[in-house]
């Protein structure tokens, strides 16, 4: 994935309108691009070409369904550890060796390592957390989600 910012002139007004509008969703219809294109004053072909172009230049990462990972089965849990600085690299190796560790970030806090565990079944979370505690000798704090809120996040291009 492209991590560098695009030059200011990489997107024209139509690209920006497509990018802003299509974060809200496409209808699930026979000709969804034609239906969405009407609202943008574009032809179906223009809209498809614009989306393909936005993907080629890396302005978007994908176009498609956003799945709720939990709804598809499986369990997820945010976890945190306070890792002493002199042991940090060793603990990273031990934690990341678990395939169930999906992402792991170093963060500015006494709890300086934050990772997400993803397992097939809910019991797996506790098991992997205990394995990590045994291997590292450090407590793993579990922060399962109690409630997820509807997200209004939109990037204005």
């Amino acid at each position: 994935m492209r991590r560098a910012a695009l030059p200011d002139d990489a997107l024209d007004e139509v690209d920006r309108a497509v990018l802003n509008r299509l974060q809200d969703g496409l209808p699930i219809t026979h000709r969804p691009f034609a239906d969405a294109a009407t609202a943008l004053g574009l032809s179906e072909t223009d809209l498809i070409d614009r989306i393909a172009h936005l993907r080629e230049i890396g302005a978007i990462t994908r176009f498609g369904p956003f799945y709720d990972a939990e709804a598809m089965g499986g369990a997820f849990c945010l976890c945190a550890m306070a890792v002493p600085a002199e042991r940090f690299d060793d603990v990273v190796t031990l934690v990341n060796a678990h395939a169930e560790v999906a992402h792991n970030y170093e963060r500015t806090h006494r709890l300086n390592m934050w990772f997400v565990l993803a397992t097939d079944r809910p019991e797996g979370i506790e098991r992997v957390a205990q394995e990590i505690e045994a291997e590292t000798g450090l407590p793993v704090l579990l922060f399962p989600k109690l409630k997820e809120f509807f997200i209004g996040f939109r990037v204005t291009a």
Partner: peptide
Amino acid sequence: IRRIALAPNHYAL
């Protein structure tokens, strides 16, 4: 499915 939509690359933007 939450929605069918594009995922902006916020780094690129």
